[in-house]
Computed example of a mutant assay.
Amino acid sequence: MKALFVAITLLTAVTASAQNSQPMPTPPGQGFGTMPPTSTTSEMRADDNEFRRGRRGTMVVIEREEVEQRLARLEQLLGEANERAGRGNGKGKLREAYEELNDLRDLIVDAPDVRSYNPRPMPHQPAPMPPPAPVYQPIADAMLRSAMKAMDREPFADDKMNVLEDVADNNYFLVSQVIQVLPQFKFSKDRIEAVRVLWSRVLDKQNGYQLYNAFQFSTDKAEVKRIISAG
């Protein structure tokens, strides 16, 4: 505010000096100022582009930071003009100070009244729809038959299990399809391992009880139950 007061005082004194056609007496220890050169508004604005870049394109409530920056710039210009006035070369600085003050006045005049300031609310944006849940399909019968043929060609249980693991990595199964695979393995321990490999890829887990009939001994059935219960 100190800078704004100084600017108004100095510009008022310059205007009075021009009207009386007499130089304004200078206080002791200070220089003197002159009226800014006569120029059209467009010319002055063209010369002052450097100081107008901070002005807002959209009318908003005045920001404290912008006003403080403009006042600081105005104070600087007036100080430089005051130093150069005694040497007769402060005319340009006074014109720049006049333009800066004019811009600040326009900024204040154009700003909305804070009491009635009501920024336009952003249009309501509906929440985006969640992506659809992925749909999983069990392995196609033709692909399952192809996988079982590949297992038939392997003589050892470990090799059959390798084929089964590869197929399980990229496919899902129904309990009925798991039951079709189990006869590929001769021993109960291998069949139990096949259930363990496929169970995480089974879609109809509610039908898991059907797997019990694929095993003869109670201990095997109990182990299958533990696999099913573990999820």
Score class of each variant (00 low, 15 high):
A81D: 02
Q22T: 07
R115Q: 13
Q206N: 13
P121D: 13
Y136I: 02
S229M: 07
G88V: 00
L164R: 00
D190C: 00
S146R: 12
P138E: 01
D220F: 04
P132H: 07
M161N: 01
V6Q: 12
N89Y: 05
L74T: 04
R64H: 08
F156V: 13
Q137I: 04
A18G: 11
Y98R: 06
R95L: 15
A168S: 00
P27G: 03
V195C: 14
G79W: 03
Q69S: 13
P123I: 11
V60I: 04
R73E: 05
A214F: 03
T9A: 15
A140R: 02
V61D: 04
E50T: 12
E68N: 13
M44V: 07
Q125M: 07
A157H: 00
L101T: 15
E96Y: 09
M148E: 02
W199E: 08
L203R: 03
A97H: 05
V175R: 15
R201I: 00
F32H: 10
R52M: 10
G231Q: 08
K2N: 12
N207T: 04
F5C: 08
R120P: 06
Y117H: 03
F187N: 06
Q125A: 09
W199M: 05
V167F: 13
N162V: 12
F187M: 03
G231F: 07
S176A: 14
M44C: 09
Q22S: 13
G31T: 05
D220L: 01
N20R: 10
G208E: 02
P126L: 06
S146C: 06
F32R: 11
Y212S: 13
L77E: 08
L101R: 14
G79H: 05
E75N: 14
T9E: 15
M143A: 14
Q184F: 02
S42Q: 14
R55E: 13
N170M: 06
V60C: 11
E50N: 09
A16H: 12
P131M: 04
A111D: 03
A133E: 12
E99R: 13
G33L: 12
L4C: 09
E75T: 05
I62P: 15
L203F: 02
D106M: 12
A7F: 01
D166T: 10
E63I: 07
R84H: 05
